[in-house]
């Protein structure tokens, strides 16, 4: 499991490879907060290579979204597979995030 951050224009794109769970959520949180601290305001997390997410992982996404909004920025999500989409629907977090089918669509108009 790993997190890779790359810049696409003024958007920080984070790839989540593997699981986003209690054992690694702090790593993701810290990496994104570090970028926020450096002045970045637009974030996209791409789940194309993600397996499953537990409640801790979902919690970190909620927390980051709030933090980024407080700084005048935005966090978007992309590339959720069917299971992850179901997870977001079960928790109604699909109503909290802007979720796109693909990275490209998420980047459009960001």
């Amino acid at each position: 499991m790993s997190f890779t951050l790359k810049k696409h224009g003024d958007v920080v794109v984070v790839d989540v490879e593997g699981q986003l769970i209690v054992g690694n959520r702090q790593e993701l949180k810290q990496k994104v907060l570090d970028e926020l601290e450096r002045g970045e305001r637009k974030f996209l997390i791409d789940f194309a290579q993600t397996g499953y997410i537990d409640s801790s992982g979902l919690g970190v996404l909620v927390s980051l979204s709030k933090k980024i909004r407080e700084h005048g920025g935005e966090l978007r999500l992309a590339d959720l597979n069917d299971d992850l989409q179901t997870l977001f629907e079960l928790t109604k977090l699909d109503t909290l995030f802007q979720i796109s089918d693909t990275r490209e669509r998420a980047l459009e108009g960001f």
């Binding site: 409640s55 919690g59 970190v60 909620v62 709030k66 997870l87 928790t91 977090l93 909290l96």
Partner: peptide
Amino acid sequence: DPTTSQYIEQEDGRGVFLMRQL
């Protein structure tokens, strides 16, 4: 219910809910 507006923006509190749902 962590899906309600009162709780949805909280970081914690979804674990038992997910076990029951899944």
